[in-house]
Design a protein around this nucleic acid. Structure first.
Length: 269
DNA sequence: ATGACGGATCTAATCCGA
């Protein structure tokens, strides 16, 4: 029996309208079956559907808003059961889910954009950090398997959980994205839901690995002060089928880049 | 010093990102 592959990509694009050119270049070169975008920064009717359709991505689950946030999942295969959950009831657009049918059967794919959390790592004085912690708390209710259906969870989770997920563990311990309350919280989400961190399943946890580099650096590559904020998780049974994982570091050097790079997981069923 | 850029918005200065 012939085996088949399923390639899933996630990318915080920081404005899909501004960067539709490099998104199309990326899709043409890597041909993922599905791409999950975060920070599309547009309303649903402003989403550049046509550009995706022309490349064969005829199916989409778009959940945007004006100016900020927004997530979208585009696919070469039909999507069903599309819905969004308003985490922390803020009325912002940070989640969209859908079901795609693969050779292995239906898989639910969650696409998340977790709040950044502001500057100060104190929920009592910083409402944005409070919002982030509450968001993470609500994610603890998500299970990696729903009935019979295995789930995948991807996106910009804005937390770098491991010491090797940041350029300096010591220097970032008090910096939002790597504080113990956040990293413990995210690990709790993983344990409670039975999720496997597929990036670290494939790339040894001892290895430094980043998916985001600040715009504020003169030479992002030379300084290399990055963080692993983007994630790909799945049910354990899907982890057994993971064939490849690629963090496309080169994308940070493209013209007018996003500050995040695409991450691609390939499953073999 | 991590490091001072980059996007969207009722085009100018302001909010937001992390």
């Amino acid at each position: 029996m012939a085996s088949s592959t399923f390639k899933l990509a996630t990318w915080n694009i920081n404005s899909v309208r501004l960067r539709i050119g490099i998104v199309c270049d990326f899709l043409e070169k890597h041909r993922p079956d599905m791409l999950c975008l975060q920070e599309i920064k547009c309303q649903n009717d402003q989403f550049p559907r046509k550009a995706f359709e022309e490349l064969g991505y005829k199916h989409s689950a778009v959940h945007g808003q004006k100016g900020y946030h927004g997530v979208a999942t585009v696919s070469r295969h039909p999507l069903k059961d599309i819905s969004s959950t308003d985490y922390v009831a803020m009325g912002d657009t940070r989640h969209v889910e859908c079901v795609v049918t693969t050779k292995r059967g239906p898989i639910k794919v969650h696409n998340f954009y977790v709040p950044a959390g502001g500057d100060e790592a104190d929920p009592k004085t910083n409402p944005k950090f409070d919002h982030k912690l509450k968001f993470i708390d609500e994610m603890k209710l998500l299970n990696s398997t729903h009935g019979e259906m295995p789930n995948v969870l991807v996106g910009d989770l804005n937390i770098a959980p491991l010491e090797t997920d940041v350029w300096s563990h010591k220097q970032l311990l008090k910096v939002v994205s790597h504080t113990p309350i956040e990293t413990d919280g995210l690990i709790d989400v993983m344990n409670k839901g039975g999720w496997t961190d597929l990036i670290r399943h494939h790339i040894p946890p001892e290895e430094k690995l980043y998916t985001w580099w600040s715009y504020r650096s003169r030479d992002w590559s030379a300084a290399d002060k990055g963080r692993r904020l983007d994630h790909v998780w799945s049910a354990p049974e899907l982890a057994e089928h993971l064939h490849d994982m690629l963090v496309l570091r080169e994308a940070r050097g493209w013209e007018k880049p996003s500050d995040h790079v695409p991450v691609m997981a390939t499953f073999k069923f």
